[in-house]
Amino acid sequence: MAALGPDLYETLQIRYPRSPTRALAPESPPAASRWALGTAVGMGVVMVLVLGAALAALITLHTRDQAELRAARADLAAAGAPLLPDPDGPQSPSESPAAAQRRKEQLGRWLQGLSLGWLHHRGKIYYFSGEKKPWGEAEAACRFTHSHLASITSAEEQDYLAREARGGSYWIGLVATGSGGSWRWVDGAAYSQAQSFWAPGQPDSQDHGQWGQEGCAQIHPVGNGLWNDHNCNFTFPWICKRDLSRP
């Protein structure tokens, strides 16, 4: 009989468990967790930077608004017009609560206008739109902000608006009315042919067929912002104007 191989129990290797008192090494966080933690930290830094930039912008805006208001008050005082209400000034003993409330509301409108991009110049504020509308809708948009399409009654005002237009075409508040096509300012300012700034050959009342003739004025790139008449149904940006001495 052949000899048997080594006893089974002699070849069996028994592995005992490790001692339970041995401390386990801490496991490294999963890669996904490390990525999420890094992303959260990065977003936090970005938010801090964004909030800081927003705060700086608000401080700059407030400083600019106060400077604009001081300039407006100086202009009105020099012209002998009623002063723009002082936000820090005391209430007059003769001022009624209703009048004080109106004063605060007026100040709020100026601040709101300046913060929304209106430009102050010599006691008036102007808004150059960034969208296009027909002349009538542009005037309606100005009225919604308690203003009108801009009238231009001096060479200095013409130069200022032409400069701010930067070579663009903008509706202004001049419109031809009546059978004779008489020109008038929509805000009630007096129109004078002698104090007008039409481009050479304008107005020419060109006929646009089904659209009709030209009967609304615009600042035009030709002649450094001189006036051109155009069909009122065409769409252009516009300029609103408001006098700071008016409520």
Rank of each mutant, 00 (worst) to 15 (best):
S154Q: 01
C240W: 01
R64M: 07
G181Y: 00
R15G: 04
S151M: 02
T39S: 13
P20T: 12
S115F: 01
I14P: 02
G167Y: 07
H62W: 09
W118A: 10
E131T: 13
S205I: 01
L174K: 03
I59P: 00
A54W: 13
D229S: 07
L61S: 14
A190V: 09
L84C: 03
P20M: 08
G212Y: 02
I219S: 07
R18Y: 03
T153W: 00
A25Q: 10
P87W: 05
S94H: 10
R70V: 11
R73L: 00
Q210I: 07
W185D: 05
F128I: 05
G80N: 06
L61Y: 01
C240V: 06
G44D: 10
Q218L: 14
A25W: 02
S154W: 00
P200T: 08
R34F: 00
W198P: 11
A2Q: 07
N228E: 07
A176S: 14
P203H: 04
S94F: 11
S245H: 08
L69P: 02
W227H: 09
R184E: 14
Y170E: 14
A74R: 12
D187N: 13
A78N: 04
D65W: 02
T39W: 09
L55Y: 06
E27H: 04
G44V: 03
G212P: 14
A150Y: 01
W238D: 04
S179Y: 03
R64Y: 08
G212T: 04
A78V: 02
G52W: 11
G201S: 10
P221M: 00
D65M: 12
L114F: 15
K132Q: 14
V41E: 07
P87T: 09
Y170T: 11
G167E: 13
N224F: 03
E68K: 05
V46K: 10
Y9K: 06
Q210V: 12
P85R: 02
K104Q: 15
S96Q: 02
L76E: 01
P237Y: 00
Q13M: 05
S115H: 14
I14H: 08
A138C: 09
D7K: 03
W35A: 15
P247D: 05
Q106I: 03
W118P: 13
I219F: 08
H121M: 02
A56I: 01
G42P: 00
A25V: 11
G108A: 12
C142E: 00
A57Q: 11
